[in-house]
Design a protein around this nucleic acid. Structure first.
Length: 308
DNA sequence: AAATCGGGCAACCGCGCGCAG
DNA sequence: CCTGCGCGCGGTTGCCCGATT
């Protein structure tokens, strides 16, 4: 059973707000405050979803909001915080008085990420693009899956082949570990109440970490990233918190260090990711033999949606 | 002048989390 | 402990408008 809608969508207006609606919402919030958004539309005389009212207020009508362009100092702060926090826009916006998470997110997506690329910095990893290209150029070549009875998890060898000149995948895992520890420290500093802030000194691997940090590498070489997942399962043992809300996924991962644990980790990820709509993407990836030979397939990465 | 393209931004959507009953 | 609800967040969509052809 899915969650019921927060409002009657048939009788709710959508789209751009009019000046009259803004005035009504502003009048209501200035008189009554902003508690219980679900009742705000009715009380304020608006045919809007409460969620829409909250968004309009926080992103546009709220007092002390800045509507002018971002300053150089703000830009630099956003870049610095993004390097540490990733796309935690609300945390970043908290450090920029008068800016909303939506403002920061839009500014990043439309301006800053392009600026970084122009300067030769990968906006996802904040590492020099030249370094990433070097890593991509030294990828391991994965053997093809066996024809019969190959499950998706069995496609992933426990010990990826060591290719001459290959940047050790361990290094990337370590990079993620250090980066995540730094992120946790910053989160704790910025928002001690944030979920997971300084919750554990132990690094906890999350699917989202890999998605965010490896998107660039995945775009060119999905098999290497999958290898990282597998390595993380082996190296991380039961320490990672993948699938926080899905105990069945986490249950299949503990006490790693062997083939079954690695496979269970991958299977658990696939299982959990069904909710995210990623399962088909991964399945397509694993089913396409071209990936094991390093390209030349009709299934380009951009067609899979990993491109920019 | 009209059509097309692309960037920027406001708004929507879906999900996770926390809390109260 | 379970369920329902409200809130907040991040990702995505779609419209508007200026630039270009």
């Amino acid at each position: 059973m899915g969650r019921p809608p927060c409002c009657d969508k048939a009788n709710v207006k959508k789209g751009p707000w009019t000046a009259e609606e803004d005035a009504k919402l502003l009048a209501y919030t200035s008189n009554h405050g902003t508690g219980n958004w679900t009742s705000v539309p009715q009380r304020a005389g608006l045919k809007r979803c409460g969620k829409s009212c909250r968004l309009r207020y926080t992103n546009y009508l709220r007092p002390n909001l800045k509507h002018e362009n971002f300053t150089q100092e703000e830009e630099e702060l956003i870049v610095t915080l993004h390097a540490m926090l990733g796309s935690r826009w609300s945390l970043i916006a908290n450090q920029l008085p008068g800016r909303t998470d939506n403002d920061v997110k839009n500014y990043w997506n439309t301006k800053l990420s392009k600026k970084l690329r122009q300067r030769g910095i990968d906006p996802i990893t904040h590492r020099p693009i030249a370094d990433l290209m070097q890593s991509i150029g030294t990828l391991a070549i994965r053997p093809p899956p066996s024809a019969a009875g190959a499950s998706s998890s069995s496609y992933l060898p426990v010990n990826p082949p060591a290719a001459p000149g290959l940047q050790p995948l361990h290094d990337d895992v370590k990079y993620h570990t250090v980066l995540n520890q730094q992120q946790q420290q910053v989160i704790t500093l910025l928002d001690p109440d944030a979920p997971g802030a300084a919750a554990s000194p132990e690094h906890q691997l999350k699917w989202s970490d890999f998605l965010a940090d490896d998107a660039a590498a995945l775009e060119a070489a999905p098999q290497v990233v999958l290898g990282q997942y597998q390595e993380a399962a082996v190296a991380g043992g039961g320490a990672h918190a993948y699938g926080d809300t899905d105990s069945t996924a986490a249950d299949g991962v503990g006490g790693g260090g062997d083939d079954s644990a690695a496979s269970a980790f991958i299977d658990a990820m696939l299982d959990s990711d069904k909710k995210m709509g990623v399962d088909q993407l991964i399945a397509d990836l694993l089913a396409d033999p071209a990936y094991y030979y390093g390209g030349g397939s009709s299934s380009s990465t951009s067609e899979l949606g990993w491109g920019c």
